[in-house]
Design a binder for these strands. Structure first.
Length: 537
DNA sequence: CAGTAG
DNA sequence: TGGCCTTACTG
DNA sequence: GCCA
């Protein structure tokens, strides 16, 4: 793994080599260009560092010469024959690479003239420093985030937050507020029906007024969701959200068709419900042998539309058919075992009890953990479908390797009865979170088996994870879709800006934004902040 | 990879 | 006409 | 199913 071909004057870069650390000399490079270059670095899987001391390569504007660059860096050209100096490269190398859509060979033409020192300053790359360097880089950012206040801070604070300058390897995490370019002015959103911009709160008290309509549409959506017609289901779901926001009883076709997300087809169906009190299509479905079976099977955890259809095609019609004749995955076996229990809602109080058990065991292992129950519980619902518990630690480190011990502890006391998904491949890499999906049972009489998800994440991802696991699903999709419009991308890990997509796939992942709080994410997206209770779409 | 889930 | 969220697990 |  050599960075250099010694027999050749040109330098051959191996992008994945962790030693290929790059620093962009900001002088003479505007913020926009710098963002582009940062993105490029990431796109080519190169390692960007925030301070020149950690960089093997310095990317500099062509207007400078080597002495100038070194003076900016406060490095002495004549000194330090032994200490390896960074190699200064023309930024043109990056732009050329961008043009080619591939890293072009790093020939000597791109390297600033260094006749005096070049021979001796070719860094050597033994294995030892590689490992050391890796560790420093991985750990520092996590520690640096220890002053986060997960729930505190209003949106306006975002702009004031800065990383301290000694924070290496955090160029990408720099406060990018100023470089976030979206074409919309403050508070303005792109054209469209953005659920995430609206509160669901008003919806709650108006549910009754159009209840018959909503219930029937919901039943249809549920059924379509269990077929492969997920986009139709999506439309129904959005229509339901819209109707929930209506403050008056809907009583004319004209006002229905005007509602966003409701077109001719749905308007006709809604009018049918209003006019006749019934919904023929739904009744057809509900009396259909196929839909009945699909609905039955689809309620098994781990059985989706395709498996359900497959079972139907095999002639299965009842749960007993499935139990005795179908080839079941491990998850489906568990899902079938608790079929009825999983369909029941969990009272709020019981969620709190489950949370308390998990907290007790987790905190016994590591005091000071941040433990937050998300999902519909955090949205303030009276009952929940499952329990989502998010765990992190403000020190940015203590969460590592935590999941398995927690699970073991909970399993040992009989709280966990079955596992569905258990990912323990924490590689201290890629910020991959760690998740457990399983089944728990509180001690005592008349208890029911409940679905429990535990997610352990690094603290710098806390806000995005919180946002994601709090939902609702529709709210998340709306928000991510909005991010997409801005050429950003939002996931449970991070919010990136400057994403370049082509044919609906990302060719450039962009640059992560600093997201200490949920509020900051809303702000980046030009959205008014919505507390969890208002995300119940 | 398809399927399922969040 | 084609996008409609995104990542991660299982088998 | 809806929308651009």
């Amino acid at each position: 793994m050599n960075l250099f071909n010694e027999n050749n004057a040109s330098v051959h870069l191996i992008p994945s080599d962790p030693n290929a650390t790059f620093y962009i000399l900001p002088n003479g490079i505007g913020k926009d260009r710098r963002t582009i270059f940062s993105n490029a670095i990431q796109h080519f899987h190169l390692q960007l560092v925030a301070s020149p001391e950690n960089a093997r390569f310095i990317l500099a504007d062509e207007q400078f010469d080597l002495p100038k660059v070194f003076s900016i860096l406060k490095l002495d050209l004549s000194e330090s024959e032994e200490k390896s100096l960074p190699i200064v490269i023309q930024i043109k190398w990056l732009t050329d690479s961008l043009k080619e859509k591939n890293l072009v060979p790093l020939t000597k033409d791109y390297i600033f003239r260094t006749p005096l020192i070049r021979k001796k300053t070719m860094p050597s790359f033994s294995q030892e420093p590689v490992i050391e360097e890796k560790k420093t880089i991985k750990n520092k950012p996590k520690r640096r985030l220890s002053d986060d206040q997960p729930q505190g801070g209003c949106a306006t604070q975002v702009k004031q937050r800065r990383y301290s300058s000694d924070d290496d390897n955090n160029d990408m995490m720099e406060d990018y507020n100023d470089t976030v370019k979206n074409p919309f002015k403050n508070g303005e959103l792109p054209k469209g029906n953005w659920m995430c911009s609206m509160s669901s709160q008003t919806a709650k008290k108006n549910t009754e007024i159009n209840k018959d309509i909503i219930d029937k549409l919901q039943a249809m959506a549920d059924l379509y969701n269990k077929t492969n017609d997920k986009w139709r289901a999506y439309s129904y779901q959005k229509a339901i959200t819209t109707i929930r926001r209506c403050t008056k009883r809907i009583d004319s076709y004209e006002e229905i068709i005007k509602l966003p997300g409701i077109g001719e087809s749905l308007a006709k169906k809604i009018w049918e419900i209003i006019d006749t009190g019934s919904f023929e299509k739904l009744e057809d479905f509900q009396s259909s042998e196929y839909m009945t079976a699909i609905n039955l099977f689809g309620n098994i955890w781990g059985c989706g539309p395709n498996i359900a259809k497959h079972w139907y095609d095999q002639g299965f019609r009842t749960l007993n058919d499935v139990r005795t004749k179908a080839k079941l995955s491990q998850n489906q076996t568990v899902g079938l075992k608790y079929y009825d229990e999983f369909l029941e809602r969990i009272p709020r109080d019981e969620v709190a009890e489950i949370e308390a058990v998990v907290k007790e065991h987790a905190l016994a292992l590591v005091p000071g953990l941040t433990i937050q129950t998300c999902g519909s519980y955090r949205r303030g619902k009276a009952t929940c479908g499952d329990v989502d518990i998010l765990i992190t630690h403000t020190d940015g480190i203590s969460h590592q390797g935590l999941l398995i011990p927690i699970i073991d502890s909970l399993r040992k006391c009989g709280f966990l009865t079955d596992d569905l998904v258990l990912s323990d491949k924490y590689e201290e890499d890629s910020g991959s979170h760690v998740k457990y999906f399983g089944v728990c049972l509180l001690p005592g009489e008349n208890r029911k088996h409940r679905r429990l998800d535990i997610i352990v994440i690094p603290h710098n991802e806390y806000a995005c994870a919180l946002l994601y696991f709090t939902g609702s699903a529709l709210f998340n999709r709306s928000m991510r879709n909005l991010a997409h419009q801005y050429n950003m991308y939002l996931s449970q890990h991070r919010l990136n800006t400057g994403v370049i997509r082509k044919n609906n796939s990302k060719i450039n992942m962009g640059t992560p934004l600093y997201t200490p709080t949920e509020e900051s994410i809303f702000k980046y997206l030009n959205l008014p902040y919505r507390p969890p209770e208002e995300r119940d779409h």
